[in-house]
């Protein structure tokens, strides 16, 4: 990827379209623990929505409920007006893909193969076609390969196609995971802490990438700890605390809401400072020192 030094496009809401994802009353209980409680969220076409909240607030659990990894105790999720069953594959087919907080690549496959797996649900060669290698198979296989390569180039990994995922640097692995999710042709992509463990420069590249994903017509939901990152990036921010939506609104509103600061400080370190963008992330601290 060519790193542009121009500042990212301003985080003003771009052309916001019709609602694409609507989650209503999503609740997830594990025995006695209610990890997610009655959360509503709407994501519109072409929007970048941020999901923030202290550790253990239930952000990842909420993602898991949206993508069918968990079956929510209560609530419904609709995508483009259709209720989607809580099954991971049905969710992907409906058009919602995700990345994982702890990178879950297919470590012993090459970068290209990882992305090609993402094409699985959009291709259809079955056993007999695969064995006999008819023209359909060859066409589809070539198209899969070409699309995967294109996506690798999109995320800036065009030269690493044949490298093993497990040998790639951490930042590249995160981007590869995004390429793999994009390969499923989603309308909406969910990114769980896409910059965790990245240095400031990689973080900058990541936000460029997320803008480009949005510009290609997708809606994005991002979980992040890095406040500066999220407030620069998002059109709208939800703050989750103890499984409940505390505040939601524009980055400016959420940023200045005293309850958000309170929640972070309550859940994080104790020293009071009037920095309106409290940081919990080493990466942010470094960036602020620059």
């Amino acid at each position: 990827m060519t790193v542009t030094d121009t500042p990212p496009p301003p985080a003003t809401p771009s052309t916001v379209g019709a609602p694409i994802l609507e989650a209503r009353g999503v609740t997830m209980r594990f025995g006695g623990l209610t990890a997610v409680k009655d959360v509503d969220m709407t994501v519109n076409e072409g929007e970048i929505v941020g999901l923030i909240g202290p550790n253990g607030a239930g952000k990842t659990t909420f993602f898991n409920c949206l993508t069918g990894l968990y079956k929510p105790t209560e609530g419904v999720v609709t995508l483009s007006g259709q209720v989607i069953p809580p099954k991971p594959r049905a969710v992907v087919v409906a058009g919602m893909a995700r990345t994982f907080q702890n990178i879950r690549l297919f470590a012993n496959m090459t970068a290209l193969e990882n992305v090609m797996v993402g094409r699985y649900c959009r291709t259809s060669s079955m056993a007999l076609t695969s064995i006999l290698r008819g023209p359909k198979f060859r066409r589809e296989e070539a198209a899969t390969r070409a699309r995967a390569q294109e996506l690798l180039e999109f995320v800036g990994l065009g030269d690493s196609a044949e490298n093993l995922a497990r040998n790639m640097p951490y930042g590249d692995q995160r981007r590869l995971e995004i390429a793999r999710a994009l390969a499923t042709d989603p309308k909406l992509i969910l990114l769980d802490e896409p910059t965790a463990g990245m240095n400031p420069q990689e973080t900058k590249q990541a936000s460029d990438l997320i803008f480009r994903i949005r510009d290609s017509g997708l809606a994005v939901v991002v979980i992040e700890h890095d406040m500066r990152f999220i407030f620069n990036l998002c059109d709208r921010v939800l703050c989750l605390v103890r499984g409940e939506v505390l505040v939601q609104g524009s980055p400016g509103e959420v940023q200045s809401d005293p309850r958000v600061i309170e929640a972070y400080i309550g859940g994080g370190d104790d020293d009071e400072d009037d920095d309106p963008t409290p940081s919990l992330d080493a990466g942010t601290t470094q960036e602020e020192q620059q």
């Binding site: 594959r89 297919f106 193969e113 797996v117 993402g118 999710a181």
Partner: peptide, 14 residues
Amino acid sequence: VAIREDEKAAEAMG
């Protein structure tokens, strides 16, 4: 291969 590597992730990738 994807299933062998990480069944959950494979499922989540469709």
